[in-house]
Design a protein around this nucleic acid. Structure first.
Lengths: 352, 352
DNA sequence: ATGAAAGCGCTAACAA
DNA sequence: TTGTTAGCGCTTTCAT
């Protein structure tokens, strides 16, 4: 009762349709050189038989795979957004994607290895963790595009977010609202941390707020944000308490929000908070987080375009493409409270 | 300066090593029938040339692909957990996974189509959205295993969570802590909602609490949870306010938590909250959410085992495998507050 | 232990 | 428009 194990081949289709395999191939590939009648007949049979071309054989023969390998982290919500964009960008160029996941127990090396066996023509690595040298070696075999992390090697293409600029926007927004005591919770050892921190510092200076610059060590997770906020609540004496916090990313920002609110503070009434990434966390929940959105559509389009350009041997002008992000104002930012002081410190009575 | 476009083939390796391709093949596959000296020499050359076997050619020839297709949603954090488990379960059986993502703009049909061309030997679909009929048609061509959704068709294998039982555990836990007024925020139109709701009702009855049964319409998102909690705060008169809430999933539970805390209530001091899934949300953040964990390790192992069993034509006893989840106690559940009333409602009036 | 030869399903020349 | 032929990179008999 269960299916015959063998799937139909092109030869089966051709035979049933009474044509040669070559002709059937032409039809299946939608290539010129077959009459409409034949075309219909072949497609008909193919459909009836449930025929699907064997990409392996097809690509083996044609020498090319038109396959782009994508390495991503199943963990990262943001990678999901990027993968979405990559699929869309690849389709019109008639390239396919094969995905290989990095999981807690499957490292990037393994993920890349799998892709190599699939004969991808280029590799797109989202937030690569491998050392530059490993990526460089790889890049000597096939085009490699790194997304979202700076790689300083001439053989590796890079498409990334202008982290620095993102924090300029966050600070500009807050200053525009009237904030002056703005702190930054950084990303710890996460890639991008240094740039975002620098962006924060530069922007503060530009606004003449160098004396207000204060960076709190943080990290990429919710706990990191929560811990940083707790530190802030504990250590900054009430008169100097910040009225706004820029956080390394959205997830950490949620940790900050939670700690603030548990301490009885209102966001954005008492303190404003800005995240980074515009992840689903910021968008899709009740959180309504003001954040800096990475332009995923542009980033993915450029990444695919670059990979294809390399594959097709076109000349490439700039190895690194840095895309400006943009501010998305939502509900966690507002003008600072009129009274300039009694915000931070442990002895703040919860709201009536 | 850029790499010669052609990658090394087995023939290249064989030539350089001074052996036949057949022998080189034996070495590369780690098959018996080659001397140690030869083995070393061939592997050496392969390494030096950066040779990676062409899986397409390899599998084309051997007639099998040992490839399992996985359809997953890039959106769903929980799918990330499952994919992680699937990779682990497949490796020891020497099967590979190829991933195909469902994104907001790439539907399940498309995702499955891609996999079919890759000549997977079976398909694992996480949380399938396709109609049963479509899955059934597919299953007539190759083994199909659905994860996490009930599919009523004899040709489709199913591995899923015992949703009903999960809510039993949640209610048992809360009752054990001394709660009686336990409400359930359901999942709206999300698959699994009905079962979880039923589990809640059954468990309440079993504890003689049928009069306390109260289901609030909810949904799978944070907003849904927040809205449901708001409704609860507004409508339930203070003396009857619940002391515990079981929520459809973790994400919605975070919405509930947020609303509760913004309303000045303490969790778990005033109200206990239990989620579902044990997603990273529950585990990895400051949230510390008590929840019902789906046993992803078992589910993925069974799913892979089932797919392989079907591929290898083994007899299968039960089409559907329903895995019991387990309670994970964290910080959002505690005994109910001593005073039985003044929890919900805007006017905190201690009843007599 | 090693090699020669055939062929997996398909596409690309070329011929008819 | 259609068919014939060769061969992609590899594994698999079957010799040696």
């Amino acid at each position: 009762m269960r299916t015959p194990p063998r799937r139909p081949t092109l030869a089966d289709v051709a035979a049933q349709a009474g044509v040669s395999t070559a002709l059937a191939s032409i039809v299946m590939r939608d290539a010129p050189g077959a009459s409409d009648a034949t075309r219909r007949r072949v497609l008909d049979v193919a459909d009836r038989l449930g025929y699907h071309p064997d990409s392996r054989a097809r690509l083996l023969r044609s020498g090319r795979s038109r396959l782009l390998g994508v390495v991503f982290g199943v963990q990262h919500a943001f990678h999901g957004d990027l993968v979405t964009g990559l699929y869309e960008a690849a389709a019109p160029l008639r390239y396919e994607l094969t995905l290989s996941a990095v999981t807690p127990r499957r490292d990037e090396r393994t993920a890349i290895g799998g892709l190599l066996q699939d004969r991808c023509e280029a590799l797109l690595v989202l937030g690569p963790q491998s050392p530059t040298s490993a990526l460089a070696t790889l890049a000597s075999r096939l085009p490699v595009v790194a997304l979202g992390r700076e790689i300083r090697h001439r053989a590796v293409d890079v498409v990334r977010n202008a982290d620095c600029q993102g924090l300029h926007q966050a600070v500009d927004h807050l200053v525009g609202l009237g904030h002056r005591r703005i702190v930054h919770v950084d990303g710890g050892r996460t890639p991008g941390t240094a740039e975002r921190r620098r962006g924060y510092r530069d922007a503060m200076r530009r606004h003449g707020l160098e004396r207000e610059i204060r960076v709190v060590p943080g990290g990429p997770t919710g706990e990191d944000g929560a811990a940083a906020a707790a530190t802030l609540l504990d250590t900054v004496p009430p008169p100097e308490g910040p009225t706004a916090i820029t956080v390394f990313n959205d997830l950490a920002a949620t940790g900050v929000l939670d700690t603030l609110r548990r301490a009885g503070l209102s966001v954005p009434g008492d303190v404003s908070v800005v995240g980074y990434d515009d992840s689903r966390l910021a968008r899709l929940t009740y959180l309504d987080l003001t954040t800096i959105a990475q332009d995923t559509a542009t980033m993915t389009t450029l990444a695919i375009a670059r990979a294809v350009a390399r594959i097709e041997g076109q000349d490439v002008l700039q190895r690194e493409q840095v895309i400006p992000p943009h501010l998305v104002v939502r509900g966690t930012t507002a003008p600072p409270p009129p009274a300039p002081s009694q915000i931070f410190g442990k002895t703040t009575a919860p709201g009536a």
